[in-house]
Design a binder for these strands. Structure first.
Lengths: 242, 242
DNA sequence: CGATAAATTGAACTCTATCAATAGGTGTGG
DNA sequence: CCACACCTATTGATAGAGTTCAATTTATCG
């Protein structure tokens, strides 16, 4: 099967074979990074572009008093810092959630990708979907209470992983602590625990030992108002979000 | 004085004169749109790119039950829908806050801009700053209480307008209702009113009749942890954010 | 000047935070 | 294999922040 980076970019639209060959090259130099390890820190100006191939990572900012907000999960195929060509310094941190394989793409290779129209468009697409996802998260934090907020998050991760064929029967690895979930949702640890138990008690899902089992995706989507349109998936893969 | 669009793009870095001449052309066909009027609706696939030249607008999403979340303010020089080349449909609405002048840039003209390296970089920069701003808003909603949240928002708008020389003595037009502010902050109207009065009582600012007077920007920044780094302003204009 | 929208106020209620204590689980050293 | 140490999850009580709803006052605008 084709690598996950290619698969992700093809969620936007099919790529020519020559482009796909290039992507196979790009993806070769993976490096394993342990769980809970920083990939990029605020203030860094990375030389290369980083790309998550396996495992998961997250973007966050830490305030003076130590409180932290997580505002994105990086799943396989996601870029860490495609913006490195434009912005002089990272304005946030990226850390692994689980042991991950991360590829470093040298600048010349990115430029080569940008020179290919289909790839260039796919890169733009990935950036714009990241932005659309942030908007949806803002709606989530601004308008929904703890339980619905959580449900929406899980629907999103489920949809994104499903689109890449990375779920099996609605279940997938989610190697996250409740503290990290709380930092994602802008909630206290205690309240996060309570909300999770509610969802568990209603038999909608089960999160245990880093494994999330979705029991009733339909109800989760309805209750949280999840509409995958913001992920801007196209073509035949659209079904995978069901 | 040079037009506000050029000024905004030069916040990233200086542009060649030829590019500036092009921008002067681009900006000519302004059209006035009344306050509280939709510029773009969710589902639209605009043919041209829209650009706010005067006045203010906002991005929002409305949920089934009518609740709404605002997740960006468009100030003079800001793009509405630069993504129109990539994403097939808008996933949110854009409406004017006040009577505004909006320019429609035809696709060929955008393509011409993209062909000029300095302009292409500036357009990327504008997109990435929008994304960084969204991240900061997420921190704001996730981690700060009503008063600090509001303070942070006002610091941001003040910094963005100051960078364009659009404030006078810390005051500027902010033609917004408390309901809209509440929808921005994920708070109820009543609570928004209370928070606003707190800030007013402490003599930090005064918002009345669509005019915001910042009384003590230092305290506002300190209390809300505002750090303009995420706006990624460069060069000589950096001072303007003070 | 009247009509309408916006801002303000107050009371009761709900959600979420805080804090502290308890329970589980896992890995390590003895 | 047990015991300790440490991290994560869980629980409960209390306090606080924020919501809801309804009523009232204050703009604003034709």
């Amino acid at each position: 099967m084709v690598n996950v980076f290619t698969r992700k970019l093809e969620l936007f639209g099919p790529l020519p074979d020559t482009d796909k060959h290039l992507l196979e090259e790009v993806v070769k130099n993976g490096r394993v990074i342990e769980a809970e390890t920083s990939i990029i820190r605020q203030g860094d100006s990375p030389r290369d572009v980083h790309l998550v191939m396996t495992g998961m990572a997250y973007r966050s900012k830490t305030l003076q008093d130590g409180r932290r907000q997580i505002f994105a999960y990086l799943l396989p195929g996601d870029f860490c810092d495609l913006n490195v060509f434009i912005l002089s310094a990272m304005d946030h941190d990226i850390e692994t959630l689980s042991r991950s394989s991360v590829v470093k793409i040298p600048r010349p290779q990115i430029l080569e990708m940008m020179d290919r129209p289909a790839l260039a468009r796919a890169l733009w697409w990935a950036t714009l979907v990241d932005e659309a996802t942030l908007r949806e998260w803002l709606v989530n934090l601004g308008q929904r209470d703890a339980e619905h907020r959580l449900a929406h998050l899980f629907c999103e991760i489920h949809a994104r992983l499903s689109a890449l064929d990375l779920t099996s029967d609605g279940a997938f690895e989610l190697p996250i602590t409740q503290v990290q979930l709380a930092e994602t949702m802008g909630l206290s640890r205690a309240h996060m625990n309570h909300a999770l138990q509610q969802l568990r008690a209603r038999n909608l899902l089960d999160l245990k030992g880093g494994l999330l089992a979705i029991r009733d995706i339909g109800t989760l989507r309805t209750m949280s108002g999840f509409n995958p349109a913001y992920l801007h998936l196209r073509g035949g893969k659209r079904d995978a979000t069901r």
